[in-house]
């Protein structure tokens, strides 16, 4: 149930909380212990990854199991730029995003011809192929990999701020994206693809845009993750485990909701840290949790809360006032 009275003060209250939250997160390294900062850094980076997988699977209907392609490309771009060419680290992150977009553009041609399960497996095969290719490519030192020495000078706090920008940025990006024309097109497509096409929405272009956006952000987030890992190796960079994390986070948090990946990232990272010494067990728990959620509450934590109690922090829907001003 939504309360409709006093819409204005309600939205002011909401923005107030968001600004306060942002202020707390920005000053976190000043008062919180370093371990805490590290956990939040991971949450932000995984949040960005989850948000991007959600944009594809939850809004665009492209269930990809090949997002690790862009993590690997992002990480390797960072390594090559800083190790082989001695260029600044931030350039490496950016180049990682750009190379991810280029690669996404190249594989979109063949891969968009596949539908449903074929698309899913197709993206996965592309990632496995890249892993094999990189492990044989001498330019990136084959299977030996890189030590990313540029990250040695960085403190956890530095990486935290990068992660903060990437994480909050990804949420904001998806938020405004869904409220734009593209977002309306996506929702129309989700409800009825052929009706949307009749109304003049170009399905291919819309899907491609989302695919490219998700490639860019995943590439940058991948680079940032490798700043904290500091060592890259092909089979770890292109491992399906990355996408497993995204899938579990989004399912648990709520597929097709903006807040879902945020909650999912918190659950995922906290559980992983809590069971740090038993890496298998956290994956087993998450697997059982994800399957149970699909069976019992297919919309995840956030979707269920929204359906039952009308709780929604970041609405993808525009209110009538916004629609009028946009039109």
């Amino acid at each position: 149930m939504q309360f409709n009275f006093n819409e204005d003060s309600r939205s002011k209250f909401k923005w107030g909380i968001l600004v306060l939250l942002l202020a707390i997160l920005c000053t976190l390294p000043l008062w919180a212990p370093e371990y805490f900062v590290m956990v939040f850094m991971l949450i932000f980076l995984y949040m960005a990854l989850g948000q991007m997988w959600n944009l594809l699977a939850g809004y665009t209907g492209l269930v990809s199991l090949g997002q690790q392609i862009f993590i690997g490309l992002g990480g390797y771009s960072l390594a090559v730029i800083t190790e082989l060419y001695d260029l600044p680290m931030l350039l490496g992150l950016f180049v990682g995003g750009v190379i991810s977009v280029i690669f996404a553009l190249v594989i979109s041609q063949p891969i968009f011809k596949m539908r449903g399960v074929y698309f899913t497996i197709g993206t996965w095969i592309a990632a496995e192929a890249l892993a094999v290719f990189f492990s044989n490519w001498t330019y990136v030192r084959s299977g030996q990999g890189f030590n990313i020495t540029a990250s040695y000078d960085l403190t956890t706090v530095d990486i935290y701020y990068i992660a903060l920008v990437v994480g909050i940025g990804s949420v904001a990006l998806v938020y405004f994206l869904l409220r734009s024309r593209l977002g309306l097109a996506l929702m129309a497509m989700r409800d009825n693809e052929s009706a949307a096409e009749t109304m003049g929405i170009e399905l291919y272009k819309t899907k491609l845009k989302c695919f490219l956006i998700s490639a860019f952000v995943t590439g940058v987030a991948g680079g940032a993750l490798y700043l904290s890992i500091a060592y890259i190796q092909p089979f770890a960079a292109y491992s399906i485990d990355w996408t497993v994390a995204m899938v579990f986070m989004v399912i648990i948090g709520g597929i097709g909701t903006l807040e879902g990946p945020i909650i999912g990232a918190v659950v995922y990272v906290v559980l992983k840290q809590f069971l740090y010494d038993y890496p298998g067990i956290s994956m087993i728990i998450l697997g059982v949790l994800a399957v149970a959620i699909i069976l019992i509450a297919p919309k995840g934590i956030m979707g269920t809360l929204h359906d039952r109690y009308g709780i929604e922090f970041l609405s993808a829907r525009r209110r009538s006032k916004d629609v009028e001003s946009a039109a």
């Binding site: 269930v63 899938v247 699909i294 069976l295």
Partner: peptide, 17 residues
């Protein structure tokens, strides 16, 4: 299409771990 796919994926990750 997606839920069966994701359930089998979850089971698969569970088994291998």
């Amino acid at each position: 299409d997606e839920p069966p796919l994701l359930v089998t994926f979850g089971v698969s990750i569970f088994l291998s771990n």
